[in-house]
Amino acid sequence: MLKTYNEKRENIKEEVLFIGNNVVDALESSLKILKSDDISALKEIDLSVKKLSNKSNEIDNLIVTTLALYSPEAKDLREMVSYLKITNELIRAASNVKGFIKIFRKAFSEDLNTNTILEFTIPLHKSALLSLRTAISMLDEENDSHTEEKYHRVIVEESKAADLYAMVEKNILKLISKNLELSKEYFDTLSSLRRLERTADRASSIASLALFAHVGGDIMQS
């Protein structure tokens, strides 16, 4: 019975990582495109939130079935509960990434002050990517001290993303006041960047849940 439970546990973890890696891959691809200054190429990124949501539902059903069939010990139970919540956070992250890619591509144009926008967008994107990639890597971490180190790394990047968003918001609002005819494009750009900042928030929640799975305590989510 133990062998069967461990097999299901590994399967669940792999499926959760599959969702997470899909979102990270989309972030990595969009960052490369931003750096190449070929914004139109964002349309080539394939990130289906619907497919990932279906996968998330399958994982949740598998978790519930596993909990019903077995009586996992405290640490394993924490892990299963964490996965139930992490799948939801990953779908929210996927939705934010999808929203960023779609809205930013449509709003961004040479009519805008592209240098100012990209000056903050690229480091904000890097923080969102690093925070989410690190949070997901915690799911495959066996060492508790390394898990805690990665958790603090995620929190630092999430805080950095919030600060960068605040700075870009201030600068874009200044640009709007000088170019009212482009206010919609600037507001849409700002809306897309807000989704990047929220992606880092979701990474923070995933990191908190992963930490809970490893060392216990309270589940703290942003």
Rank of each mutant, 00 (worst) to 15 (best):
L182T: 02
K32S: 13
S71L: 13
L132S: 03
Q221A: 14
Y186N: 06
T147R: 10
T87R: 01
S29Y: 11
L52S: 00
D60K: 09
V23T: 02
E119W: 05
N96H: 06
K8V: 13
S95Q: 07
S145Q: 11
D46N: 12
M138H: 03
L139T: 02
L129G: 12
F104A: 05
I176C: 04
S222Q: 06
F108D: 12
Q221E: 15
S208F: 12
T189V: 10
E185D: 15
M80C: 06
K35E: 15
L112P: 00
S53N: 07
F18L: 06
F108A: 12
R105K: 14
R78I: 09
S53V: 05
R153F: 13
E197N: 11
I117A: 08
I176A: 06
E15W: 06
I206N: 03
M1E: 09
Y165A: 05
S204R: 10
E149Y: 09
N113I: 01
L62Q: 04
N115P: 01
M220G: 02
K106A: 05
L34W: 01
I59N: 03
T4H: 09
P123Y: 01
I63Q: 07
L209C: 08
R202W: 08
N57V: 14
D37K: 09
R195T: 04
K3P: 14
F212V: 12
L118G: 06
I219P: 10
I172Y: 12
S95T: 01
L17E: 04
S109D: 09
V23A: 07
S30F: 08
L67A: 04
S53T: 04
E79K: 14
E28Q: 10
L193W: 04
I219Y: 11
K160A: 10
I39K: 15
K102Y: 09
N88R: 07
D218R: 10
L190T: 01
S204A: 15
I59W: 05
R92H: 02
K55H: 08
T116Y: 07
T66P: 06
